[in-house]
Nucleic acid binder design. Sequence first.
DNA 1: TAGTCTGTTAGACA
DNA 2: CTGTCTAACAGACT
Length: 263
Amino acid sequence: MPELGEVEIVRQNLIRWWVNKSAKDVTLVDTAALTQGEPEEFIRVLSSPCVGVRRRGKYLILEFSDDHAVIFHFRMTGKIAPCTGVDDRFVRVAWTLEDRWYGFMDARRLGHVELFLAGELQNYGPLIRMGPEPEDIDGATLQKNVGKRGLKNALLDQRVIAGVGNIAVSEVFYRQGLPPTAKGSDLVGSLAWDNLAKAIAEFFDEVIEEQSSDEVIYLNQGALENPFDVYKREGLPCVRCGQLIRRDKVAGRSSYFCPSCQS
DNA sequence: TAGTCTGTTAGACA
DNA sequence: CTGTCTAACAGACT
């Protein structure tokens, strides 16, 4: 669930499911999922009471009562959701809470989990370098962090602003009328930057509002309906002007856009 | 069938 | 500094 909104939904779910409780039946199904820490200690920590769940950008941070923390990163296809048990398809870590099974599921196995002492978190590079959360960043800071480079490339850089992914870029650019190839230097005036910062935060607020559920379903995993305005809508009419949505590769990844509204 | 695409990101390279 | 490419991996789609 790679973008900020989906990770936040998982955070809120875990607060309901796990905080002030202890998991049982903790099983590291795929030892390769654990990229920092020893399996035995990891299982012991996950079995101790969970005292808090935090999020920073796309990183999910679970705090446990014995002064350890566990960080999940879902990359492309990972998620934490209810599951059937250790034999469920794609399950990499499984556990029970109040006799119900939950798991870290990850079809592509690009995601991972890491074990830390609570005090070590402040030395974790990705968190140290991470830019401000969308709800905290102002236009001037965003402009400074982006500089003059390609806007899409910059926004995907987690040091510039936390949590933005490829979907958010397409959707926010559409809402702001920006072509996918816009440069930082194309955005003139503090108002334009304030609006961009606001649009990013609003996009994620809407995702959290509209997609909250026990299991986030990705578009390519059988979601009933595409909830986005342009993302994955190549060849379909723009909802504002009727022109056909196009897909171009920008910064190495697909950008969906309306050639008329975004020029 | 084989090739192409994928909601991420660190690291290599030009 | 900037941009572009790749690998890590595996499933779904054309």
